[in-house]
Design a protein around this nucleic acid. Structure first.
Lengths: 242, 242
DNA sequence: ATATTTCATAGTGTATGCACTTATGCCAAA
DNA sequence: TTTGGCATAAGTGCATACACTATGAAATAT
């Protein structure tokens, strides 16, 4: 059954909240600085600001209609998230992540996703599982419509929700921090149809494993899911370290 | 053999560098803001600023002989490290960590320390191992002298070095971020002689396991080490987690 | 041509000021 | 003696200003 326009746009409206949660900006979400951080994060993830590109506080202040003071605050926050580099006395640059570092992030994500999936399979609540299945169905719809952007964001939402569902704030924040650092790559990675196909199959099976309480399988699928992403990156950019 | 005054003070001089590395401030280490962050971090860890205490930017600016602008930047950095809370429009407060959260942090640290120890046992270099043993010997000296403060800092240094030695920056940054959040508790925890005694025995055995390349034992000891810390906290503050 | 120095321009780091919000202490009322 | 309300003090968030540093292009030397 085809989805309506409002449903298609649903995930778009959720993005700022999703990113706020992932970046620990819940409190600041309504502040000027918080909104600026979210907007710049989206620009970086969706590659409107390319890796390595210069970013100075004066232009940003003009762009957001603010002074440099709050802009600098936003830049500090973005640097702490690993999205930009701010060398002292030099102009900020959109971060460039080395292949080596990409591999490290993905491998640690695989480990932590494994932990989350294990715990989720052991003790997810019925409403959380229902919500997870709902997000999965949206992933399927986006996949069938070849809407890779929606698919990507629903995918991010799926994992963010799964991590919330296990009720361990610390584990969630650690995973989210790693996830945000490579969101731009995860985005690129969802474009080819074949990747989405496999991704969806894995998520569908993972959801079942969680529902069945099969923690070992859930953990293994989660790890595989992440490592598959890494190996696709390696195919696309062979220089991505071992 | 007794250690000299300079040797005793050695770890004290290293603290700012150690904290810089753990907080990802290497670049900013020489900046005004960086120094302020390190100083405030020490005040928080060593409990000169108590959990929940108010911290306003005007007093801090006076104290450091600066204006509020760089002070606010330092406060943003400290908030991102989880050391203070800065609610919008409200005064910053030294963070209070719930027992639940303490348990989460320790459990995740146990997991990640396990990973580090496993990798270290598999591929630590000879110079790194030598340095580790050196730090261990300093821990022993401090222990024998009943110098709990030095013992504590050498202990932190031991783990920081071990994490460096495996050559995974991402894993190290994740562990360090968690470690800094609970440094104040780790500090308290090293005061009772009995705790130091057990801690030293565990570290001595861990070092041997790493030297022997026994990755399974090294991982198990590392996890136990952290979880023992948690269980001591639970004894002292019975309200700490389930 | 290529490398080196010079210098104007652009950008950073910090201080200061001000409008607005939150905290505090006092007084009145129960 | 406590409670509620209000005036005042204290603090935050942002804008602006300015000294200092990096950057890049022209001018000079190789």
């Amino acid at each position: 059954m085809p989805i309506t326009e409002t449903e298609r746009d649903d995930v778009q409206t959720q993005i700022p909240f999703l990113l706020s949660r992932m970046m620990g900006l819940e409190d600041r979400a309504e502040t000027t600085v918080g909104r600026m951080v979210i907007q710049l994060t989206r620009d970086l993830i969706e590659n409107r600001i390319a890796a390595g590109e210069q970013l100075n506080s004066i232009d940003l202040a003009r762009r957001f209609g603010l002074s440099r003071t709050p802009v600098r605050e936003a830049l500090v926050l973005l640097e702490k998230e690993g999205l930009i580099d701010v060398p002292p006395r030099r102009r900020p640059r959109a971060a460039w992540i080395s292949p080596q570092r990409i591999a490290e992030v993905y491998e640690l994500r695989a480990e932590l996703y494994g932990l989350v999936a294990r715990k989720a399979a052991q003790r997810i609540s019925a409403p959380d599982l229902a919500r997870l299945k709902h997000i999965l169905s949206r992933m399927e719809q986006s996949h069938l419509l070849d809407d890779w952007s929606s698919y990507f964001w629903y995918n991010v939402l799926y994992h963010e929700h799964l991590a919330s569902a296990v009720g361990n704030t610390t584990l969630k924040r650690s995973i989210d921090a790693l996830g945000v650092m490579v969101l731009q790559l995860r985005n690129r990675n969802m474009r080819p149809l074949a990747h989405r196909k496999r991704s969806f199959a894995d998520h569908a099976r993972l959801t079942m494993a969680i529902e069945d309480g099969d923690d070992t399988l859930a953990a293994a699928l989660s790890r595989t899911l992440v490592l598959a992403g890494l190996s696709r990156l390696k195919d696309e950019f062979p220089e991505t370290g071992q």
